[in-house]
């Protein structure tokens, strides 16, 4: 082995040793620039009708929206001296922006992902007496909303966070996450636009009076007991499974995965187009080579994959 290789190995071993020993005995927060002890709790309380919307922009924080029990808006979070959190509470929209110098963000993005610690949570308590709009932005944080039925528009954007909407009624939902999973359970809405690059989109018992648009590159699309005016689902590299769907216009596309759709209705009422380059096509339990069925019918099903099987099953209503 060359001298340089030996030198590199020696430096690496010494470095790992020194780092491991002194990290263990030091109180220095190596993996995060911000020490947990430096966090201080902040809380703001407002009347229910003081705002109609909330615009929060935090780096590396999780958002949790809860029902307020005292009919007042409450916002809670933890902050440090190293952060500059600006609260603008004039006007109809409560704006909170977290400016943290990039140097303090080194390694600290992992905090919100790796720990469940509440210091990385931003909590918003909303009264049920009013309807609100929510517009949240986070770099690595998650969004969790449970049991809310008074949100009009929800816009959420994050790079690496998961999104959970459970038992919610929200008029318009727009969610974008690069690497997070999007889960909706027992929700209803008029419009749903979900976009993730590498996460799975999972909808269970979801009713949408308008359109559902879903886009993921490397995640699965899993729909169970979903009703909508139209459904458009696009995945590049994963399978799509849509079960017990109630919809008159379904369009599901993937490049590398199976597509399975079970839909309520008479098969004679649906114009069906199925296409796959490398796989089998099954039309209501029968393997077929024909791509089009019932051309001209008003209800539409379009299932397209390049490398996978395509199956459509019709369920009697």
């Amino acid at each position: 082995m060359g001298k340089l290789f030996k030198l590199a190995l020696a430096l690496f071993l010494i470095g790992v040793g020194v780092f491991a020993i002194f990290t263990a005995i030091s109180d220095e927060p190596i993996w995060g620039s911000i020490n947990e002890e430096e966090y201080t709790y902040s809380e703001f309380v407002y009347d229910a009708d003081e705002f109609t919307g909330f615009n929060f922009d935090f780096s590396n924080r999780n958002f949790i929206v809860r029902v307020s029990e005292d009919d007042q808006i409450k916002v809670t979070y933890y902050e440090t001296e190293r952060e500059n959190i600006t609260v603008t509470d004039t006007g109809d929209v409560l704006r909170i922006k977290d400016d943290i110098e990039w140097v303090f963000q080194l390694f600290s993005g992992w905090n919100s992902i790796l720990t469940d610690d509440e210091i990385f949570d931003v909590e918003l308590y909303l009264p049920t007496s009013m309807v609100y709009d929510i517009d949240f932005d986070s770099s690595n944080g998650q969004l969790t909303i449970n049991n809310m039925d008074n949100i009009d528009t929800l816009n959420f954007s994050t790079s690496n966070g998961r999104v959970d909407l459970i038992d919610c009624s929200i008029t318009t939902i727009n969610i974008y996450t690069s690497n997070g999973k999007i889960v909706l359970e027992d929700c209803d809405s008029t419009s749903l636009d979900l976009d993730t690059s590498n996460g799975t989109i999972e909808l269970t018992r979801v009713d949408v009076t308008g359109a559902i648009i879903m886009d993921t590159s490397n995640g699965r699309l899993l729909l169970t007991d979903v009703s909508a005016l139209s459904i458009v689902g696009d995945s590049s590299n994963q399978r799509i499974v849509a079960q017990n769907i109630d919809c008159d216009d379904v369009r599901l596309d993937t490049s590398n995965g199976d597509i399975t759709l079970s839909i309520y209705g008479d098969k004679e009422d649906f114009e069906v187009y199925m296409d796959t380059s490398n796989g089998d096509m099954v039309y209501d339990g029968i393997e077929v080579s024909q791509e089009r069925f019932n051309t001209g019918e008003s209800k539409k099903i379009h299932l397209d994959t390049s490398n996978g099987d395509v199956e459509v099953i019709f369920i009697e209503e």
Partner: peptide, 24 residues
């Protein structure tokens, strides 16, 4: 400023790991 003197060594350890990658 590290919170204690051991913190300097912990950061030195990181620097040495970086240096080893550089040499490699």
């Amino acid at each position: 400023t590290p919170v204690d003197s051991y913190g300097y060594f912990a950061i030195l350890g990181i620097a040495l790991i970086g240096l080893s990658l550089l040499v490699l």
